[in-house]
Design a protein around this nucleic acid. Sequence first.
DNA 1: ATATTTTGTCTCACTATGTGAAACGACGTT
DNA 2: AACGTCGTTTCACATAGTGAGACAAAATAT
Lengths: 260, 260
Amino acid sequence: MGVVTGDGTVGKALTVLDQVAGIGRPVRMRELLETSEFPKPTLHRLLQTLTNQGMLTYDPDAQTYAPGIRLVRMAHIAWSQASLAPIARPHIDALAANLREAVHVAQIDNGQVVFVDKRQASTKFSTLAQAGQVAPAYCTGVGKAILAFLPKPELKQALQLQAFHRYTPATHTNAETLKAELATIRKDGIAYDREEHAQGIISIAAPILTPANRVVGAMSIATATNRHSLDGLEAFRPALVECAQKIGAEAQSWQPPSLP
Amino acid sequence: MGVVTGDGTVGKALTVLDQVAGIGRPVRMRELLETSEFPKPTLHRLLQTLTNQGMLTYDPDAQTYAPGIRLVRMAHIAWSQASLAPIARPHIDALAANLREAVHVAQIDNGQVVFVDKRQASTKFSTLAQAGQVAPAYCTGVGKAILAFLPKPELKQALQLQAFHRYTPATHTNAETLKAELATIRKDGIAYDREEHAQGIISIAAPILTPANRVVGAMSIATATNRHSLDGLEAFRPALVECAQKIGAEAQSWQPPSLP
DNA sequence: ATATTTTGTCTCACTATGTGAAACGACGTT
DNA sequence: AACGTCGTTTCACATAGTGAGACAAAATAT
């Protein structure tokens, strides 16, 4: 049966690429070697391949690898057509204009939430997600909003990928309590992050559903506990839901990841 | 010697990925098959691999492939460290605030110009580049500004990659006339696009040079012929050059693509 | 309805490609 | 000079990718 196998050489190369990109600064082979599952010569060869493929860049002096421009090129194109950011943009602009909190749009990928767009609160304070960043699904508002509306097989698969790491006292640490909450979310059409991912950060999130009722993503309004209480977030609910609906109505085109 | 060989399976996979991303809409295998150099079963397998790697997405109904979200996830990270956009951002913001024309920042990748950031003119009119977009180097202001300051071996390599397609009557159609212009550009420290890529669009471009005098990119101010003449662009020159210098001063860190 | 073409998927013998232990080399350090 | 740490190269080995061709499934024609 289909183990989540790392498909041959290409899979390995992409793993390395992800790793380098994920570190977020030029990195030496040594460092990668510690995290990576690959033996030294293999890693070396993969890095070389990626480098003369233009996906990575190599600084001979520092002996460091960093993401290459070819990746940037592809990435942007992908963003502009694979994500629903372009569709969402005008709507969240309109929404964000009327409030002073952060607005996020996210999609799910392999059990992780990928933020595809955001509007920062005008307050310079917040430490919130940037487009392209990832977060776990099980402890974020957007993540739970998506999970709650996922078809069963995909949900099952997604749940298996959750690490259930305890970020804060409020974090779900097992699938059971999470599942229970998902049922509520599904009923209400709304999800909350009650400081589950970061202390002091809460959010209210709504799924983005196509007319055919498929989840394609979620959006949230996030704030800090010293600015609003959970109850206070309730005030944003109508606007949030309406906005999510508008986006969903236009989002027929998005394609979900497929299974082999 | 090192032919620009498409390094094994990974190279092939990336070629396909690029192709799908480049088309810019969900695409069927058939269409890829026509352009691609790969035989049918190979292409099919590559598409499958990329799909269950999350780099592509497959719509079973339409039987189409499109860029996947995993690519998006890499986007932000890559952009924020592989490009000099983050460094350039404050400077071009300041520059753009004082004029009503489009400002672009670009880097070079495999003979092509990659726009890594831009500030749109407030005039809603223009049809100009978006971040991540590519254009040929030989017929754009930024492209020529970069080429002019490239070290000889890299320039030679880059020139071989130019297609010299005639976009407009003013387009360079061979390496000789281009080289002649590059000499002038190198001397003046400034390049112009005289409607070489698109009718009615002109620009003035300056290279971005590190303190060690290496080109890491270029920036331009672009406008339409019905708004300004080429001579009119001259007015922007001092501000443009100053801005490019400021960016260059901060851009030591950037790593150029390396050769095997 | 039945043929015909077009497009996607699968099989399988073949070998090119990638693999990784081990040896080597290049620096830096003590 | 001897040692330790990383990076690179080698090479016998087998896995993993290859692609002609057969097959299946749609779509279009007759």
